[in-house]
Design a protein around this nucleic acid. Structure first.
Ligand code: SF4
Ligand code: SF4
Lengths: 142, 142
DNA sequence: CAAAATGATACTAATTTAGTATCATTATAA
DNA sequence: TTATAATGATACTAAATTAGTATCATTTTG
């Protein structure tokens, strides 16, 4: 019963760090020095974010990743969708077959109602609203 | 991002069936004939519900399971807890260590707020509210 | 005592989540 | 022009969770 997986959590941290960085373009190595996230995993995550258009990337020396949008235009709902697929609290699928009760099931209806609320909340959470004071782990400067 | 696992879904179906059954005491074999749930799995689920006090069980010929409470006293929140553990949308634990940001993290705060709503909804969903017209699959009578 | 039920428990299989490893490509700067 | 520091692409492995089986023991009824 978890709302966000580790990918999403890491993505939020990385995006927050980039948002607050003095430099616009931040390489993975710097994120790795400051956040507690394994570097290859971080790279994978950022590459996905880049492919999905949430980041812009620059190759070569001096390169790195940059936010594609202002932090108030980046929503948690989108990050969750990217890493965890569609925002559903119940798929109602068993061994690739849709549950035959899906039309009438009251349980599904109740879950759908909850889901509606959850989604609307998630669509309301922007990156800015998550910034706070980021911890920097073991790095020299602040 | 799923609110209920299969155990919970099956448990709801089984409890609903028992609730609507003419006979108070229902054996697994009958549930298995009417619901689309593999028998050994069903047995495991009912045994757990019994251990947790949601069902009463009767051994021997003519035995089976019976609801321990009236259907309006059985809550989805409790079933989820039984099969999926505590009602949390985010554990904030990595490799058995609590995330160092847990006190200040804004993401956590937002998720906690959503969680609060979800839990209160789940505590409001009773078995009666889920009864509806149960489908009976391939059984003779309705 | 046979049959029909649950109790207890251990095991296996499938799926999802988490994370690595490698090699290719690109851009910068000495 | 070449070393270096970066990303791109992709395939792989490991760990954890979820889903489901299998077996044997015990109990109750007839
Ligand atoms: S029983 Fe209801 S909730 Fe469960 S899978 Fe079918 S439709 Fe969805
Ligand atoms: S970063 Fe925030 S949400 Fe993620 S684990 Fe730490 S406290 Fe929880």
């Amino acid at each position: 019963m978890k709302l966000i997986t580790r990918d999403t959590d890491y993505a939020v941290r990385a995006l927050c760090f980039i948002a607050k960085c003095e430099r616009e373009i931040v390489p993975v190595s710097e994120l790795n020095r400051n956040l507690r996230i394994p570097k290859p995993f971080l790279r994978k995550i950022l590459q996905i974010l880049n492919k999905k258009g949430m980041l812009k990337s620059y190759k070569g020396k001096g390169g790195g990743f940059m936010l594609a949008f202002a932090p108030n235009k980046i929503f948690l709902a989108d990050l969750i969708e990217i890493f965890q697929g569609s925002l559903k609290l119940n798929k109602c699928i068993f061994k690739k077959r849709i549950c035959p009760d899906i039309k009438t099931c009251k349980l599904k209806k109740r879950i759908d109602a909850i889901q509606k609320h959850v989604i609307s909340e998630l669509k309301d959470i922007t990156l800015v609203s998550l910034l706070g004071e980021t911890r920097t782990y073991g790095a020299k400067g602040g």
